[in-house]
């Protein structure tokens, strides 16, 4: 469990799918473990366009967007999301993702500004720790 459990205002995350991919096992599991760790998780369901995801993230005032990909469409879709966040001046919303993502693509995604990429088999503990650390970093920066 992270410290977040005890906080009165838990950190909000949007964890979901973008595009047409219907594989939800991983994303629902990850949503579940973040809830277990005390986060408030919004799961928007299937078939959301990059525009819808970004709009929802801003409206719901989430700290980060976590997206799951098993369809191979991660590069074009994430690239659109990063552009939209920039356009909307919402770059403070962090982006992380997971799924079937080849090594070479991880480098490309990181260059686009994606903070963490989790591939299959990553333990719950590491996912929670690494994402939690992102917020620690950004609050340090604020100080």
């Amino acid at each position: 469990m992270t410290e977040n459990t005890e906080k009165k205002n838990p950190i909000r995350l949007l964890i979901g799918k973008v595009g047409l991919d219907g594989h939800t096992r991983g994303v629902q599991y990850v949503a579940h473990i973040f809830r277990d760790a005390g986060y408030e998780v919004i799961y928007p369901g299937l078939r959301k366009s990059p525009k819808q995801i970004v709009k929802m993230a801003i409206e719901e005032d989430v700290k980060a967007i976590g997206l799951s990909f098993l369809s191979g469409a991660h590069i074009p879709l994430i690239s659109e999301i990063m552009d939209l966040l920039k356009d909307k001046k919402a770059e403070d919303i962090l982006v992380f993702c997971g799924g079937v993502i080849p090594d070479d693509d991880i480098l490309i995604l990181k260059k686009m500004g994606v903070r963490e990429v989790f591939t299959p088999g990553t333990s719950d503990k590491i996912i929670i720790e690494k994402v939690t650390a992102l917020f620690a970093d950004s609050s340090d920066e604020e100080k």
């Binding site: 595009g19 047409l20 991919d21 078939r47 366009s49 369809s71 191979g72 469409a73 590069i75 074009p76 879709l77 659109e80």
Partner: peptide, 15 residues
């Protein structure tokens, strides 16, 4: 959806 539909962007020929 057809391949030229906006919703198909990034997904054509992928899986």
């Amino acid at each position: 959806y057809d391949s030229d539909d906006a919703i198909s962007r990034g997904e054509v020929g992928r899986v």
